[in-house]
Design a protein around this nucleic acid. Sequence first.
DNA 1: AAAATAAATTAGGTAAGCCTAATTATGTAT
DNA 2: ATACATAATTAGGCTTACCTAATTTATTTT
Lengths: 222, 222
Amino acid sequence: MKKATSLAEENYLKAIYKLHERNGAMVSTSALAESLQVNAASVTDFIKKMAAKKLISYEKSRGVMLTEKGRLIALSIIRKHRLWEVWLVTNLGFKWDEVHEIAEQLEHVISDELIEQLDKHLGYPKTDPHGDLIPDAKGRFIKNSSKPLLDCAAGDRVKFTGVAEHSNSFLQYLTRSNIKLGDELLVESIEEFDKSFQVKINNKERKLLSKEVVKNLLVMLL
Amino acid sequence: MKKATSLAEENYLKAIYKLHERNGAMVSTSALAESLQVNAASVTDFIKKMAAKKLISYEKSRGVMLTEKGRLIALSIIRKHRLWEVWLVTNLGFKWDEVHEIAEQLEHVISDELIEQLDKHLGYPKTDPHGDLIPDAKGRFIKNSSKPLLDCAAGDRVKFTGVAEHSNSFLQYLTRSNIKLGDELLVESIEEFDKSFQVKINNKERKLLSKEVVKNLLVMLL
DNA sequence: AAAATAAATTAGGTAAGCCTAATTATGTAT
DNA sequence: ATACATAATTAGGCTTACCTAATTTATTTT
Ligand SMILES: [Mn+2]
Ligand SMILES: [Mn+2]
Ligand SMILES: [Mn+2]
Ligand SMILES: [Mn+2]
């Protein structure tokens, strides 16, 4: 069982997948360089080699896209990352803002049996601790209908299902504000001037959330 | 938090530790080359760099020894390896002959909090699935008094506590023979000619074990 | 002790994955 | 259409961790 994909390749594939997911279309050299914290010249070099391996398609000076082969590898890394995050939170007692760095390492461990057993051990979770969907072993996941709370109207009753921003400072802000995944939010009013939202959480506490916050809270209508 | 020790350095340190443990004294270039499956010339190169970093002491043409610094790193890798093996067997349902390769990867994941939480989660195990001792966070472990079954005499009643040989074929032989860690073995007789042992397992089954087998079964007198 | 053998080192290279500096291509403003 | 700014690529290097072939050192055998 030899290693077909290097650590660097796995990280490039994952970065390309995520940049494509957020911005659509082709991924630019500079976006990749920024995301991977690597010099743009190094990226140009590397993507040429990846294109030769048919992991991505590359149009000179225009950017890259994942091939089906590359997309499946990216999804398997993302699957591993998210399953490990679930394990770290539910079995080892880590907080949702403490697991990403560790999962960044664990996601590269190679063993199909391991990841299958882990999935089973966790009870086949559909989402990770941040509400992100976990693809199945074949790279498929059920897209859900969550959207930013910002897009909701006064009077909407929704469930908090995920975050659009994964920074520790945002996750910690939510923890301090006692807003947890699965909470029910009622939009009581929206301030026209600054788009801040007055919400009621789980029919109990009232909270004022800034536009910056509601933009990054993903919710589903109840 | 930067990475002080590379993957290759970790593997060299672990190999040196294990070779020293088995053979005592200094570890030769060729022994390391064989153990790590790399060319001897590469080893010579690498150990010079490790010596410059004070991870080992190196006497040209005579061999290497771990410094205290290197020993502690080696022990921390071994600790991680064995804790992960315990987890794979007790939580994920792997067999004792299926965990080593996966643990070889997991042992390099860097996070003190992770390994302490894992240790806690597992209930602070003292031994791994092969009976090997798990060092504590400071690199200490309680040496036990196990010895090869070969060194026992007829009439001895012992407990099977570990294996001196970790190959999958030996582990699988024991599984097929229904001999498990913790089993009680009674030495009924020893054949003078070939040193084969007639043993009674858990006061039930009788088995004939070859010298090659009893040499590699570690036991404690009851 | 000399010769033969085995082990270790040195010398010179390679591939992966990065870098900086220089050059070229692309997109925007005038 | 030209000039300017930004993005991308090319050229030339570096480090890590390997390699093979040649040489030197250590250990055995005769
Ligand atoms: Mn994450
Ligand atoms: Mn996540
Ligand atoms: Mn092992
Ligand atoms: Mn073990």
